[in-house]
Simulated scan of single mutants.
Amino acid sequence: MCSTLRLAVLVAIVGCAELITVRTPKKHMDVKLGENALLECTFETSEDTTSKLSFSWDFAATTSIAPNQMFVYQSGESIITEDYEGRLEAPVSPGTTKNVSVVLKNVQVTDSGLYTCDVNNFPDVEGTTEANIKVTVLQEPSKPFCSIHGTSQPGHTVILACHSEHGSPSPTYKWTREGDVETKTTTDGKPVNTGTLSIENVTESDYGMYRCTSTNVAGTSICELKLHADSTDGGPLNSMEAGYIAAIVVGVVLGLVLTGVAIWLIVRAVNAKKYTGVEQKEGTEMR
């Protein structure tokens, strides 16, 4: 209703309201790190001329809410914003070709996000005036760092940690032991995001060569380590690994506390019963 009213008002003002349609053939794009990204956008207009054509490109990073302007075209002039100078290739003769596509060069992981093409060609004031493209920049996981944390002596708990510093999208991790058919992970054979493998109540059968595979759609990287009775602690953990191990420690401590409380209550109940029995016996002898 509001749209119809607005259109009627505009018709009264300009005499005739036109429609514009903006399209993109790719709403989702995967681009490898360092390559160029062609952001395609075309438009159709019912107006005979494009002398009043204006359009812009905006970018909203996956980690940001507010979009940033990349490019503006108005009155036949192209303006590339400072952050994209030298990286953005502007369209040629957009009014004639009705093609307002741009090329973003040497894409980086920080270029992942939503790109918006907005087109106006007055008096085209209604229709589909913008198109969105979601871009994901792919980066193969960097070689992960494998480490051992805890005590690897029999009967103890040991943590195998694996982490790739870089990778887009964020990699998943799988632990396998040499000679084992099944994957050893913290989620019953499924890939894990933390990269940590907890081995509780270590036995000699747990010793051997372990491999961590870090994987995303861009590729795979691996690291290996050997677990044995004299394996040394790998030092400090990163925040994700530390959080996982802290959860294990809290669980163990809480279990010990609850066990202690339960034992105390049982001992107290037994002592109270003995004390009651003694009092009853003494009372009988006095009588």
Rank of each mutant, 00 (worst) to 15 (best):
S3R: 13
A12R: 11
T21N: 15
E35P: 05
A37Q: 01
A37N: 04
E44V: 10
S54M: 12
A61V: 01
T62L: 08
A66D: 12
M70K: 00
M70C: 01
F71L: 09
Q74I: 09
S78K: 05
I79S: 11
D83H: 06
D83K: 08
E85S: 10
A90K: 12
T96A: 07
K98F: 02
V102K: 03
K105N: 08
N106C: 01
V107K: 00
V107P: 00
S112A: 04
G113I: 00
G113V: 00
E126H: 08
E126S: 15
E126K: 05
G127A: 08
G127C: 04
N132I: 10
P141R: 04
C146F: 12
S147V: 06
I148M: 05
H149S: 08
H149P: 06
G150H: 04
P154Q: 05
H156K: 15
T157C: 05
V158R: 01
A161Y: 02
C162H: 06
H163T: 14
S168Y: 05
Y173F: 09
T176N: 03
R177V: 03
E178K: 11
T183C: 00
T186C: 01
T186M: 08
T187P: 00
G195M: 08
D206M: 06
Y210W: 02
N216K: 06
A218F: 01
E224K: 14
D230L: 13
T232E: 14
G235Q: 06
P236G: 07
M240S: 14
A242S: 15
I245R: 14
A247Y: 10
G255W: 13
W264E: 09
W264V: 15
I266R: 15
A272T: 14
K274N: 12
K274T: 15
T276I: 10
G277Q: 11
